[in-house]
Amino acid sequence: MTQIIIQGLLLSGLYALIAMGFTLIFSIGRVLNLAYGAYLLIGGYVYFYFAQMMGMPKLVGVLLAVIVGAAMGLAKYRMIVKPLKGDHVAIEISTLILAIVLQSGVILAFGDSSKILLPIIPGVERLAGATIPYSNLLAAIVSWAILISLYFFVNKTHTGRAMQAVSMDAKGAAISGIDSDRINMITWGISGALGALAGVFFASYTQLTPSMWVAPLIISVAIVIVGGIGSIIGTLIVAHIIGFMEIIVTAMIAPELRGVFTMVLIIGVLVIRPQGLFGREEL
């Protein structure tokens, strides 16, 4: 029981971190960013390259991953989202293609075998019969710290409020003196950085593979659909519902079925409450 609670909390924290960058773009930029998983992929490999292959300090590896992630987010906004402005189908298809291209690039550079990331902090803690790797604990703590900061940033700073304003009423934002282009760049940059960071933790939770962008994307979509458009609190709650559900299914029924229950939940919510459990357009 304790084991389930602890593992549930850890996994849920990770899921919340994974989904947050996706939620941000979905609710502010109104774009279903199907290449979101690619930030995690690239983040994981950048960390692997610098921290593990080049032997740089791990913190530097994480930092580089975050920087590359932010740059990817910015580049994607500039080169795809902005030129295609408003054409959602075109944006979604091109982001999906981008993810697949990046996956091929990763295979070309690193081969398609999976790799084990050395834990950021080695070692485990035993607590009430549960084994907790320090890395997973770190992932959950970092994830919580980031979610709390993000909540305050979005709700209590001028830039954060401007991000919400742009998503709620573009004209209202413009006449308040907000440059929506600049705000969008900030949003895409943050989303990329969050995705890359989540990628480092996700890869150390599971392993590094060129196809590791798919599962986080599904988790993110699930959390956004079940939670409703982009509330940070909603994302947090649903991440816990899904995280705990997967741990419970794994422990009580069968590990192979964990993903299936998530899918059933998505479909159920879509049918019964299409706007999501906490569905409304706020952050």
């Binding site: 304003a165 209202g172 006449i175 357009e281």
Partner: peptide, 10 residues
């Protein structure tokens, strides 16, 4: 503006 263009959920 005529339609106010407020931010409804704020």
């Amino acid at each position: 503006t005529e339609r106010f263009n407020l931010f409804p959920y704020m």
